[in-house]
Write a protein that binds this DNA or RNA. Structure first.
Length: 674
DNA sequence: ATAGGGTTAG
């Protein structure tokens, strides 16, 4: 027997039992044999195409497909499926339409792929037209097709009319549309209506048989569109139809309890998951991590994560986000490093989740590293990431970089506007902040709850009480935002700082307590997390500074730094220099029962001064010094640092717990109001 | 054919 005839026998054997091929490698080997021993009949070629498309091997499939003059149904079906499964949705649809123009009728297991393509291309009209095709062919009784239709309508539920997505109408039976029509660039039908719930219900009711997938699809659709009660009702209905919730059901339901901050119900689901061995499921685990994090139960998030034997990128993202949102920044950064060590590639979500940790901790070097990673990864144009970068640079003291990133952004949403406004507010540039707020309004971006907190912060740091009142009054009048606890707090703070104590008392007395009760559950949980963060911060006053990519932390009176002797010398030296400039220690704040000399020494070793002296001796002359302090800078240090900035001729930026101070040439940007 | 994670505040 020649080697060719052996090959031919081999190929024929496989063609009779195509499922005996188990690996891509085997499939590729078969192709070699096949090409050696051509020609074959169109039906044999089609079988081979179906084998390749099952392995999602697009190119060999296309190669064989193109060799056919009039491809049979199986060949078309395989190509449509292969295109859809490899993300080439437009090609998948074009191919389907082409097939129709050849007069070939689709079979039921073709529709799920075509409908999936419509979902990805956000082309509702095309989907509807395919639905029509399904009905005309009498295939709407098919379970898989029905489920795919449910999925399509569920996904289109969330698409707003005129929401920027492109929709185009054409009839599948009208022949071939042009490419640009399929992707909808002509967009004649932008006014596509929101798919009403009853559309989905109708499809569901028409289905002669429903399985768990049908229910899960509808439940997920409702859950993702904020129709929580409807979703939960469907879960009960599913149970009435004698169908057991599975891991898909649970991972759709968990985010609802996360949003409701209902840890009791969330735990019940967790229990159910454990009893049914679903708790090691990626999807459920990340929903559980998120649910616990939303309920301010970060310890429970961590236990879920730790019990996972395998973790995917989303598991990592979930736990990192959970830590950062709960103010456990160090742990978040630690996990981020572990994620990199585990060679899990960070994604866009990873960066926007971790960035606030750098912002809060003022670790500029880390933020910059992440920024570099973001640029290399091509994530620059992601709104979430850009907003978090604006925030990070502003909070790390570099308002110019923050503004630069903000200006680079193609579109600004309310979050990015708020981030930059808050940035200017924290730096004491109240007028820039308020100007940006006006620009935002002119841009047609509606401010939200948080934007007004930024506005009041800006007014507060500049003592602009009248402006603040104007904004406070217009907030509900012009934008329908009811003032909440945070706004009252910011206003009271502002009046207090401005010395208008009477007004502040009166204002607090007039507070609408009802407005807090009306706040969403989620905000209540956020408030709890915030309180927790404050509670955790029981450590003494401390300041930190980054030198050569390392963070050096100092507490008041701290002698533990290896360079303490040199720091002490530098402090003494600085003291002498500023005393020549007229500095007199202001020992009125904080103490009693301490003699003057001791007082002088205690003030002398305040944490920000230790950090400052260290910064001066360990960086080249003229370098800007950035210090972060966990509590407010005291009056005496403020005076001293102003003078130090003059005598050492350096710009010194101190961020305390409420704002930035830029010291230069003996002056501070806060104009001594903070 | 169905499911999970993100930015702005105090």
């Amino acid at each position: 027997m020649t080697s060719n005839s052996t090959a031919k026998t081999l190929v024929k054997t496989f063609l009779r039992t195509p499922h005996s091929l188990k690996t891509k490698f085997q499939a590729k080997q078969l192709l070699a044999q096949f090409l050696k021993t051509q020609p074959y009949s169109p039906s044999s070629i089609s079988i081979l195409i179906s084998v390749y498309s099952n392995f999602n091997l697009l190119h060999p499939s296309l190669f064989l497909f193109n060799s056919l003059n009039s491809p049979p149904l199986l060949a078309w079906k395989s190509i449509v499926k292969c295109y859809a499964n490899s993300g080439h949705f437009l090609n998948s649809l074009t191919c389907f339409v082409q097939m129709r123009s050849f007069g070939i009728y689709p079979d039921p297991n073709m529709f799920p792929f075509v409908l999936k393509a419509c979902v990805f291309l956000k082309n509702l009209r095309l989907g509807e037209s395919i639905h029509g095709c399904v009905i005309r062919l009498g295939l709407d009784f098919d379970l898989f097709t029905g489920n795919a239709l449910l999925n399509m309508y569920a996904k289109f539920q969330s698409l707003q009319p005129n929401g920027g997505h492109k929709v185009f109408a054409f009839n599948v039976f009208d022949g071939m549309p042009k490419c640009d029509e399929l992707c909808g660039t002509s967009a004649q039908e932008k006014g596509a209506s929101i798919i009403q719930l009853d559309r989905i219900t109708k499809v569901l009711e028409m289905m002669p048989k429903r399985d768990v997938v049908s229910w899960n699809t509808v439940i997920a659709g409702n859950a993702q569109n904020g129709m929580y009660e409807e979703a939960l009702r469907m879960v009960r209905e599913m149970g009435n139809a004698n169908m057991k919730p599975d891991s898909f059901t649970l991972s759709s339901v968990l985010p609802i309890f996360a949003e409701y901050v209902d840890v009791i119900k969330g735990k019940e689901i967790h229990g159910y998951a454990i009893r049914h061995w679903f708790d090691s499921d990626f999807y459920i685990a990340s929903s559980l991590i998120d649910m616990y994090a939303n309920c301010a139960r970060i310890e429970d998030s961590c236990s879920v994560f730790n019990l996972l034997s395998k973790r995917d990128d989303i598991s990592w993202n979930s736990i990192i986000a959970a830590c950062v949102q709960n103010g456990v920044f160090d742990e978040g950064l630690k996990l981020f490093r572990q994620m990199l060590t585990a060679e899990v590639k960070p994604r866009d979500v990873t960066f926007s989740s971790i960035m606030p940790a750098c912002a809060y901790l003022t670790t500029l070097h880390l933020g910059k590293q992440l920024h570099g990673y973001i640029i290399r990864g091509g994530f620059n144009d992601n709104m979430f990431i850009a907003s978090s970068l604006v925030d990070m640079y502003a909070k790390c003291g570099n308002i110019k970089a923050a503004r630069w990133i903000f200006n680079q952004m193609e579109h600004h949403d309310m979050v990015s506007w708020t981030a930059i406004i808050m940035g200017y507010a924290l730096h004491g540039h109240a007028h820039d902040a308020l100007l940006l707020f006006k620009q935002m309004e002119m841009d047609g971006v509606k401010p939200n709850y948080v934007s007004y907190i930024a506005v009041f912060t800006a007014c507060s740091h500049a003592g602009l009480t009248e402006e603040a009142w104007r904004y406070f009054n217009s907030m509900s009048r012009n934008h329908g935002i009811k003032p909440g606890l945070e706004h009252y707090a910011a206003m009271a703070d502002l009046l207090g700082r401005a010395g208008k104590l009477e007004e502040a008392y009166e204002f607090i007395g007039s507070m609408h307590t009802a407005s807090t009760a009306a706040r969403r559950w989620k905000d209540a949980a956020k408030m709890r997390i915030f309180m927790k963060k404050k509670g955790i911060r029981k450590e003494p006053a401390c300041s930190w500074i980054e030198v050569k990519n390392r963070v050096h932390t100092f507490i008041s009176g701290d002698k533990s730094h290896p360079l303490y002797d040199r720091i002490f010398e530098a402090l003494k030296d600085l003291l002498e220099q500023i005393e020549r400039e007229g500095y007199i220690p202001d020992t009125n704040e904080d103490f009693h029962d301490v003699d003057e000399e001791q007082k002088k020494y205690i003030i002398f070793s305040h944490s920000e001064r230790l950090a400052l002296a260290f910064g001066i001796i360990s960086t080249p002359a003229g370098t800007t010094i950035r210090i972060t302090k966990n509590i407010r800078v005291c009056v005496d240090c403020h005076t001293a640092i102003k003078l130090i900035s003059k005598v050492v001729q350096r710009e010194i930026i101190v961020r305390d717990n409420s704002r930035f101070h830029h010291f230069k040439d003996g002056k501070c940007s806060c104009r001594d109001y903070w």
